Structures are given as structure tokens and as C-alpha cells.
Computed example of a mutant assay.
Amino acid sequence: MAIKNLLALLVLVSVLGVSVAHKGRLDLNYYKHRCPDAEAIVRRVTIQYVSRKPSLAAALLRMHFHDCFVRGCDGSILLKSPNNDAERNAVPNLSLRGYEVVDAAKSALEKKCPGVVSCTDVLSLVARDAVVVINGPWWPVPLGRRDGRISRLADANSLPSPFAGIAALKQNFFAKGLNTKDLVVLSGGHTIGISNCGLINSRIYNFTGRGDFDPAMNPSYVRTLKKRCKPTDFRSAVEMDPGSVKKFDSHYFNIVAQKKGLFTSDSTLLDDPETKSYIETQVSTGGSSFAKDFSDSMLKLGFVEILTGNQGEIRRRCAFPN
């Protein structure tokens, strides 16, 4: 899609989205008077970065998810610590990237309307616009979130684990006000994700300590992974949705249905009647409802434990509290 046409599409859907009603104290027109060009500025910066490096779309989507699952959507994932004990220093977050996109968008906003737009709102918009750049689904992003001042490494323990079974994952999501459908739908974001051999090493080489692989995995898929990941290779990249990693579509559910989910957290979606049924429906219908479902779940995610009103602050720089 040409950049000019993409900009036109984003403007159009932004206008159409104004009719959507929202809870909380967020508003689609929150910056209309104080920074009317806020969304356009973020959009322009995001397009500049993601059009050059499309893999940033998955990275920025993941960053937004990780932010909202720890202390809520408050931008705490963006904070740095002189002692390296902030959220971004936790093991699950060490592979996060794309901070420069958020920082660039925030810097552009500060020049236009200083002290107005929160870093949390910037991250929320960047994640959405990045997905749209690669022709993924659009969702409305009501605005007005405030930035948190606290970021603790230990709090990242609340992130859903790639090694978790269905019961633990459901508990993670329920704790954030998200349901079982949100769990399976948002897992579909793995359609554009990549990981590394280190996170699947034990799953394909020594699952129970006896030199075996996880029986929940398709044996042919395990053989393919072993060709990619040698026993001592913990760094090579692995696609989460083989054959479709550059395209945001429902192909991920076909992979999971074939028992080719990369992580336990992918495979275990077949262990629950509701998540399994959703996967089977997407496979049989060619993902007919996935784009809308993903948009709906992302809208819900953006409301998780938000700070509004006089809570928190509007950071001048996203990596540091004022």
C-alpha cells in the first residue's frame, strides 16, 4: 500500500471511529483542542519507521501488551532505571525493541504541544498504527491515559509466560479484566511475531529430562525446529507463524490447529473448549471474524488499569519520570 493511500485510510478510519462509545474517562477526541494534530504526528512518525522496518510492527504491539499487563497501561515499560531494576530490565522484556519509535513520536509532540500528550497514549497509538502499516486491523484508541511514575523489575512476573498452561494463562487474563476469548484472540498477534531458539530448546530436546520433546507438538514440526535450532543454539530467530510471519492474518490459528504452536502457551490453546472452538472456527472460515475480534480485544486491552484525571503525570521524556 502506498504511503499516501495509507495516510488517507488512517484518517478515514479515525473519523469513522469517533462514533464509538467508551468507558473509563478516555475520549477519542481527548486532544482535540489542546493538541489537535497529536494522532497525525504519531501516525507520521510510525509510518516513517515501520515502512522502513516492518518487523517493528510486531515489536511495538508486544511492547504495548507488556506495558498493559504490568501495572496497567501506564507507560511503565518505557521507564529506565539507573540501577537496571525497571520493568524493561526483566528477562521477558530484554528482547523488547522499538523504544526509538515511541521516543521519536513523543519528541515531535513535545515540539508541537509540550506537556500535553502522555507517553502511554503515544505507545497505544504507535502499536495500533504500526499494525495498520503492515495491513493489519485498525482499532479505535480512546485517549487520555496518564503516565505512571513507578517501574519495578519484579512486577514483570505478572506477564503471561510462554511456558504457561491454559489455566495459568486464563488466570493472567482474568486478573486484567480480559476473558477467555480475549486470550485466544490476542494470541493471534503471534502471526507476526518471532522468538529465539533459547525459549524452545527444552521443549524440543529435553522436555521431561529424558532427551524427549513435548508430545503436544507435531513430530514433523519438531524435526524442522531441530534443523533450525541446534542443541547449543539459544540465539537464532524462529518464526511464530511459519510461512506467514510478515502478514497479519489468521494463519496462526491454522498452525496451532496442526500442533505447530511454538510455545506451550500456543499449544495449550487446544486444551480449553472455548479457545479450541475459536481456533477451529477461524480455520474453517478462513479467519472471517479475526480482524474484528482482534480490534475489539485490543480496545479492551487499552483500558487495563489506566491512570486518568490527576493520577500519574504527563512525562516530558518517556524514559524518565518528571
Score class of each variant (00 low, 15 high):
269 L>I: 04
247 K>T: 14
153 L>R: 13
168 A>Q: 12
137 P>K: 10
223 R>T: 10
144 G>W: 02
185 V>S: 10
185 V>L: 09
87 E>A: 08
24 G>I: 03
204 I>A: 02
300 K>Y: 02
303 F>T: 09
317 R>A: 10
253 F>I: 06
180 T>A: 14
236 S>C: 02
320 F>E: 10
256 V>C: 08
128 R>K: 14
1 M>C: 11
15 V>K: 14
17 G>Y: 03
56 L>E: 09
299 L>E: 12
125 L>R: 07
250 S>N: 03
194 I>F: 12
43 R>P: 05
102 V>D: 01
8 A>E: 13
182 D>N: 13
76 S>E: 03
304 V>N: 08
229 C>S: 07
198 G>A: 15
172 N>I: 04
313 E>K: 03
293 D>E: 13
242 P>D: 03
228 R>W: 04
97 R>P: 00
196 N>E: 12
109 L>E: 06
286 G>P: 05
286 G>V: 08
274 E>M: 12
222 V>L: 05
94 L>V: 09
145 R>W: 05
218 N>W: 06
132 V>M: 14
238 V>P: 08
90 A>T: 01
120 T>W: 02
252 Y>P: 03
16 L>P: 01
201 N>E: 10
263 F>E: 05
164 A>G: 05
251 H>D: 12
122 V>S: 11
138 W>H: 15
274 E>Q: 15
98 G>D: 00
82 P>K: 02
114 P>Y: 07
143 L>V: 09
120 T>P: 07
31 Y>F: 14
73 C>N: 06
286 G>Q: 05
278 Y>M: 08
247 K>R: 15
284 S>K: 15
213 F>D: 11
131 V>D: 03
294 F>R: 09
268 T>L: 00
78 L>R: 01
256 V>P: 09
89 N>M: 00
282 Q>K: 03
293 D>R: 05
19 S>T: 15
318 C>P: 00
7 L>K: 15
191 T>F: 03
72 G>R: 06
84 N>V: 00
68 C>R: 09
110 E>K: 10
317 R>Y: 11
111 K>E: 12
195 S>A: 15
257 A>R: 13
296 D>H: 12
286 G>C: 05
96 L>W: 01
175 A>I: 06
193 G>T: 07
271 D>G: 02
237 A>E: 13
15 V>Y: 08
249 D>R: 02
266 D>C: 07
106 K>S: 12
12 L>T: 13
6 L>M: 10
97 R>S: 14
214 D>E: 08
82 P>G: 09
29 N>G: 07
296 D>Y: 08
222 V>S: 07
167 A>L: 11
139 W>E: 04
312 G>E: 12
96 L>G: 05
301 L>W: 00
52 R>E: 15
225 L>P: 11
265 S>K: 07
95 S>L: 14
58 A>C: 08
1 M>F: 13
57 A>F: 04
15 V>N: 10
78 L>H: 02
173 F>H: 00
232 T>S: 11
74 D>A: 13
